[in-house]
């Protein structure tokens, strides 16, 4: 499990970098459009198509890393109040549901990619093929499904042995008030 976690972490780090770089590209494109139009009366043809296709990279590639940082919004009130074993059972179920829906979405997104490829789906103005972006989305969701599945397994391990420190270390960090205020 630790090995899988390390591999996933490496992939997630690369992906969030690509997402960050794409955000910079969107910034550069939009700024270039504003300046080119404002100063030289020469708007960049098709920048709408380019930004449209760049958006999924900026908006989705960081999704799995966000899970490792516990950044996805949730309501942990009830879960946190449960006894340890019960908490891990509920958490495992929640992660399992996450793995299931992300796998489903990944397959659905993959079919969307297949149709885009088969039917030459492209953008209206520059006519750029959309299939690479759709494939990227399917892959991101598949990665997220694996990440969820790994966390589900870790929680299951903790159901068996709540004191398993090695398993606990694989989960997103859980800080306390004392840690932060010193």
């Amino acid at each position: 499990m630790a090995v899988v976690d390390r591999i996933l972490r490496a992939v997630e780090a690369v992906l969030v970098w690509i997402a960050a770089a794409t955000t910079a590209v969107i910034l550069a494109l939009a700024t270039a459009e504003i300046l080119a139009r404002g100063l030289f009366n020469a708007p960049i043809r098709g920048q709408l198509d380019l930004i449209t296709l760049a958006m999924p990279f900026a908006a989705i590639l960081g999704i799995s890393r966000a899970l490792t940082r516990n950044a996805h919004v949730r309501m942990p009130l009830v879960v946190d109040a449960l006894p340890q074993r019960a908490r891990h059972i509920v958490e495992a179920a929640g992660m399992g549901l996450g793995a299931f829906i992300c796998a489903v979405l990944s397959i659905g997104a993959y079919q969307f990619f297949e149709r885009a490829l088969a039917y030459s789906d492209n953008t209206p103005d520059l006519r750029i093929p959309t299939w690479p972006v759709k494939l990227m989305i399917s892959a991101s969701l598949a990665l997220l499904a694996v990440r969820f599945a790994l966390y589900a397994l870790v929680h299951l391990r903790l159901v068996r042995d709540p004191a398993d420190a090695a398993a606990e270390a694989l989960l997103p960090a859980h800080r306390t008030l004392e840690d932060v205020t010193e």
Partner: peptide, 23 residues
């Protein structure tokens, strides 16, 4: 500076207009 898409944008740029693809 005009708002036009695809074929119409091509045709109008032949007239020296520059087209932005504004939504």
């Amino acid at each position: 500076r005009i708002r036009a898409l695809s074929g119409l944008a091509d045709a109008m740029s032949a007239l020296g207009a520059s087209s932005s693809s504004i939504s």
